[in-house]
Design a binder for these strands. Structure first.
Lengths: 181, 181
DNA sequence: TGCAGCATGTAATTTGTTACATGATTAA
DNA sequence: TTAATCATGTAACAAATTACATGCTGCA
């Protein structure tokens, strides 16, 4: 499933512009599917050319026309076919873990920095999940709740694991072992 | 960090062929960094052309020459520079989660199939982690243990989360609610 | 007889990323 | 005045996937 198909899926929720979809990719989808304008706009053009979506251009003052895309019946059919894949993949590409594999070649302070930055990143996701929980979540489809819950669970596990095991990689400089003083 | 850099890192463990590296990508690295022959061989050629590795061709009978690559001092320096990135990314690309977002458009039995297949995939990873734990693990660098433990923790959380929340997506056909029978 | 494993690679294609290009509005 | 938000897109580039291409050995 590529960006095109995910955009098509997002449009089942109602008409939207490329700009709108980008916001979804930055929020609810951010933890498992990345896409920038450079892939979203071409995706929408292509979907439009294939007749899977229709585009309505809404003129605006001082801004480019807002192009609002709406899924067609053909688009719905295409999406359903795409959703029939019985084994959709789940891929991780982690430069973080790759880096940690070679931690023994790094300076301890650099390892600490990498870990702290990762924890910050995780914290940002957790903040996002918290916001979703407090807000609109009730009227979302169950699948979306499942996916958000999934992300939250994984983020929590990562955080705990890293905190409990970072000592394996490098002892913190400030962690002076009891010196009896 | 691309395939090239990871190959370079793997070679710090000792000389190896493209075929050997592929086996690592299929085992200990499989849960966070994918690479096939189509990217490994070109990566090694390129590293060799840049002088970051050296290649020794070992003739064999009935097989193509085995090309054994060894990291050079220049290669080590290059790797250390690459490891200095303070914020290496950790990206997930999940067609599985994307599919689940649109579960309300799918047939319940198809949802079950997708979930069962995902659980099988997770189980395969867990089996792999178990094998590593029983074997050679002791002489591995701490970073590698950290990374394997990370994968194991995530796999466990996924499994538990999916089992505990799959009912949100579709009630199993056989799950007849207490009939008083 | 057939398949898995060993062992290498190339070429075409697909996909996505990054940088570039434009430009008005609004709040700090 | 400066940054963020709104709003679109293209073109060059980078990277990885897939299919293709070869061919021996050893086991079941």
């Amino acid at each position: 499933m590529d960006v095109k198909t995910v955009c098509l899926g997002m449009l089942t929720d109602g008409p939207a512009s490329g700009y709108d979809l980008k916001k979804q990719f930055e929020s609810s989808f951010a933890h498992f599917f990345a896409a920038g304008y450079g892939s979203i706009y071409p995706a929408l053009s292509s979907l439009s050319a294939s007749g899977l979506v229709e585009c309505e251009e809404v003129p605006q003052e001082g801004k480019p026309d807002r192009k609002v895309y709406e899924i067609t019946d053909e688009g719905r059919q295409f999406l359903l076919k795409a959703l029939e894949n019985p084994s959709p993949c789940h891929k991780v590409r982690s430069e973080f873990l790759a880096t940690m594999c070679f931690a023994h070649l790094m300076r301890p302070e650099d390892i600490q920095t990498v870990i702290n930055n990762r924890l910050e990143d995780i914290a940002r996701y957790q903040e996002m999940f918290r916001q979703f929980e407090s807000e609109e979540m009730c009227d979302w489809p169950e699948g979306m709740k499942f996916v958000l819950g999934f992300g939250k669970a994984i983020a929590g596990t990562m955080q705990t694991y890293i905190n409990e095991n970072r000592h394996l990689l490098a002892d913190e400089p400030s962690a002076k072992v009891a010196t009896g003083q």
